[in-house]
Structure formats: C-alpha cells, structure tokens
Amino acid sequence: MLPSPFEFERPSTITDAVRAFGDSGDGMFYSGGTELLLAMKLRVIHTDRLIDIKSILGLDRIALTDANDIEIGARCTHNKIARDPVIRQYVPALSSLCANVANIRVRSVGTIGGNLCFGEPHADPPTMLAALDARLVLQGASGTRLVHVDDFIKSELETVREPDELLTVIVFPRPTGPVTYRRFKHGERPSVNVAMVWSMDAAASTITSARVRVGALGSRPQPLKGVEDALRGLSVAEVRPAIEAVLPTALDELEVNEDRHGAADYKRHLARVLLLRNADEAIAAGWSA
C-alpha cells in the first residue's frame, strides 16, 4: 500500500507547473491527493512525477466578478467552498454540497478541481457544476482554453484535459433562480445525484430556462432534456405536474450502469425521487429577484 517511486516538484507559478510537466512527459498535477494518492497506493495509477500545485498563489480564490460570474479557483478545498461567504450567499446549495462531500478528511484537503479532473462518476460536484453551466479554464503549454463541464468529462475516469493542461478556474453565471441538489448514498460515494438550476425572469414568476443534471448513473452527468424543455416558460405553480408528465420518458432516456450501487430500475427510480424532492424544495424556496 505504498506508491511506486516518483519525483516530486513544487512550482510556484502556473507557467512553471506546466513547464515542469513538459520536462518529464509523464507527470501528474497534484493538490489534495485524496483520489490520486489512494490510486497510486493501490498501484492502479503510476506516475514518474508529481507536480504539487499547492504553492501556486491565486488558485484558491473565490469571487463574484463584474460580469456577474462566480469564479472558484480549482485548488479550493471542499471546506473552503462550503464556508465561503460568496458561495453561501449566491449558491447555498453548492455550499452545503461541499460541506457534505465524502468525509471530513477529504473535505479538508481535497479540492474541487481535483474532483473534476479525476472523473469519478460517483461524485457530487460534477453534477452540480454541470447544472450550473460551469466552464473550466484549462491552461497548457499551447495556451488557455475554456471547456464546459458537460463536455469536460468524457467517460469514467476520463476527461478532455490534456495531461499537461492545468485546470485553474471554474466559472459559472450567478444563479438567477433556485438551485437544488440532492444525492442518495449508502456507502462512501453517491449512488445517484440530481441537480436542478432554474433561471427566473425579472419578476421572479416564470422559469425562463432550467438545467437538470443527473449524475452517477452513467459515466458522466446527464441532462434531463425532457424536463428542461417542459419547465421552460412555466410559472412555479405549474412545475410539479409538468415534471411528472415528462419524467418517465426523460428517465428512460438516461444511460444507467448497473453496479454495486444498485440495479438500473432502482437507480432510475431514485433519480425520480430526488428530482421531485428538488422541485418541491425549489417551489418552496419562493425565489425573489
């Protein structure tokens, strides 16, 4: 239960980090290590070089920008996000999600960026960030690019990030409606999770658009298009019957893996339960613009 030998570097700038990577060709960025070190100890991941990004300043910033975007530095720990005043004010559901990720050890040192980059399907943050329409800033030797969370995770434990690209910031628009998240877990990781984000019109009476993501069922968070379409233009009072009408079909379209977390029909059912509970919470929240 010890990792195979590796070199260790601790650059202090993003440029150095990316360059450090370029020198070796087989390195990995490392921050909290709650997934990576475990996998290295189990020897399912081998790396010649760990590039510790904890000395890079500015990667753990959380801010609301002038453009009304919320930016979260990739190196923010779950605990930091959970306690951050900006997140608590504008996205309390994300704050509480982060306050309940995994266990206290993971929350203390594990980072949101590491969580995304590991691509573990049974994880809390990706589903929520996908529903929030978050974009990820990836910085590599050949420049910087922006990728939507929806496009970031390719499949189980696989993302579009090039090995020498560093995820630096997560950006998403400040929500203009209720944000809800629920998960079901019986064990260490969530079996199913559902995040729902409504954008309300200026009068706070009509849903102008909705984003719904179901996570942990397939290899990555999946949209519930049918529900999103049905919610568009609805008043809050019309939500529940509208969802119930389209939900069976929408759920049937989901890719569901049968695994230790349950059989497909059960997990689809759980997605339904969580979504309806989210809807009830969003309705009860009584959004005001």
């Binding site: 189990l42 260490e188 230790r260």
Partner: peptide, 21 residues
C-alpha cells in the same frame, strides 16, 4: 444495514476500506 464482503464468481469486489461500508 451495511456490511457484506462481496464475491462475484469468487472475485472479491469490495475488499477495500473505500468500497466496504
């Protein structure tokens, strides 16, 4: 409520402290 050391055709599938609750 939680515990079972699972085998699939003899292969242990949750014999780690991460997968065993």
């Amino acid at each position: 409520l939680y515990e079972v050391l699972e085998f699939e055709d003899g292969q242990p599938i949750n014999a780690t402290p991460i997968d065993y609750s």
